[in-house]
Computed example of a mutant assay.
Amino acid sequence: MSSTEAFIVSAADAISAARPGSRRDTAENYIKRLQALEEVGRAFDGVEKCYAIQAGREVRVMVKPQAVDDATAAKMANDIVKKIEATLVYPGQIKVTVIRESRSVGYAR
């Protein structure tokens, strides 16, 4: 080390390298985690679409309103939470939202 700054930079680099995940390719793991979350949601009957949003901290599941009633949607949200807890490794918490929407449109002529 030729200067004090070089010693400080070397020490900071060593500390940074020791941190888990600091120098690994985490983008690939991030995408795999999001896909795994979406697959858990899609595995249930009556699911139309499933999206992992907010960096994997929330899962939105859109169900077919003809196939799933309100009570089943609430039970499905709890079942998805239990399956995520049992099968996936994730940091923090994940919010699961089941959306059931039915639209009725009429035209007067």
Rank of each mutant, 00 (worst) to 15 (best):
2 S>H: 13
109 R>C: 00
109 R>Y: 05
60 R>Q: 11
85 E>R: 14
38 E>F: 01
63 V>E: 01
27 A>T: 05
17 A>P: 00
27 A>K: 07
27 A>V: 06
61 V>A: 01
104 S>E: 10
32 K>Q: 14
7 F>R: 10
9 V>E: 11
16 S>P: 00
105 V>Y: 13
39 E>L: 10
38 E>T: 05
49 K>E: 15
53 I>H: 01
34 L>N: 05
38 E>V: 02
61 V>W: 00
59 V>E: 01
101 E>G: 07
27 A>R: 10
59 V>R: 00
76 M>I: 06
40 V>I: 15
27 A>I: 07
62 M>G: 04
37 L>C: 02
29 N>G: 10
76 M>V: 05
60 R>I: 14
18 A>K: 08
20 P>V: 10
106 G>N: 10
22 S>Q: 04
91 P>M: 07
80 I>N: 02
88 L>D: 03
29 N>I: 03
65 P>L: 01
89 V>G: 09
15 I>F: 12
109 R>P: 00
82 K>E: 14
43 A>E: 14
36 A>S: 12
65 P>N: 06
19 R>N: 05
70 D>R: 11
81 V>M: 13
13 D>L: 12
43 A>P: 07
68 V>T: 05
23 R>L: 14
10 S>R: 15
9 V>P: 00
54 Q>A: 14
31 I>C: 08
100 R>S: 05
44 F>W: 07
72 T>Y: 05
67 A>C: 02
42 R>D: 09
99 I>D: 07
70 D>V: 13
47 V>Y: 02
56 G>Q: 05
